[in-house]
């Protein structure tokens, strides 16, 4: 069993740049840096975004849990609560529907020359982040901790002995859903 890999910052940053390059290349080739494709997904007319996200989740899940079991990696789970994971993402979603790009696809859209993504989207996101930093002290002691459920996964809350008892059915469900979308003609 190989141990975990610990690179120093130089090569780690260089790999970050390289993997980011691949990520942006894939988003662009997938068409999801296009406003029209994202908007038509949100209007439920085109399912490219859903196909990419769910394929990435299924493929990613199998490898990441496999490597965790081999002792090669640790998971990186975020803490959540009703006070963070509902209102924040809902506000994000409304912004997503107005802008027609999310942070990754918006920066990717700048890559094909979309100036609305740059002058409207990226500038807006920077302003929004600073606004959040300004109100953060007020939210921190109040709403953010409401209904805290930590970093629990679906595997933690189900009575299973092996994570694969959850992963395999989830991957099969994703495959069935994608197959149905194709069968329905999308």
């Amino acid at each position: 069993m190989a141990g975990k890999i610990n690179l120093s910052n130089g090569p780690r940053y260089l790999l970050g740049l390289l993997f980011g390059f691949c990520f942006g290349f894939l988003l662009q080739k997938g068409g999801v840096t296009r406003y029209d494709i994202i908007m038509r997904q949100l209007l439920l007319e085109d399912f490219t975004v859903l196909k990419i996200i769910f394929t990435a989740i299924a493929v990613g899940m199998v490898g990441v849990y496999g490597m965790k079991q081999a002792g090669w990696i640790e998971l990186h789970k975020k803490q959540g609560s009703l006070g963070t994971s509902v209102p924040g993402p809902l506000i994000f979603g409304i912004g997503f529907g107005l802008l027609g790009y999310c942070p990754g696809t918006g920066i990717g859209a700048v890559g094909h020359g979309a100036l609305d993504a740059l002058v409207g989207g990226v500038v807006g996101m920077l302003i929004g982040c600073s606004l959040y930093a300004a109100v953060y002290p007020k939210l921190k002691g109040t709403v953010l901790n409401k209904g805290n459920f930590g970093d629990k996964t679906l595997i933690d809350v189900l009575p299973v002995r092996s994570p694969w008892a959850v992963i395999v059915p989830v991957v099969l469900l994703i495959a069935a859903m994608l197959w149905s979308i194709e069968a329905a003609g999308f």
Partner: peptide, 21 residues
């Protein structure tokens, strides 16, 4: 509209500690 959307995305992403990625 893009600017308004961007502001909501930035604000909401930080409130919810993450984005679509």
């Amino acid at each position: 509209v893009a600017l308004a959307g961007g502001i909501l995305i930035g604000f909401g992403a930080r409130w919810g500690c993450g984005c679509t990625s």
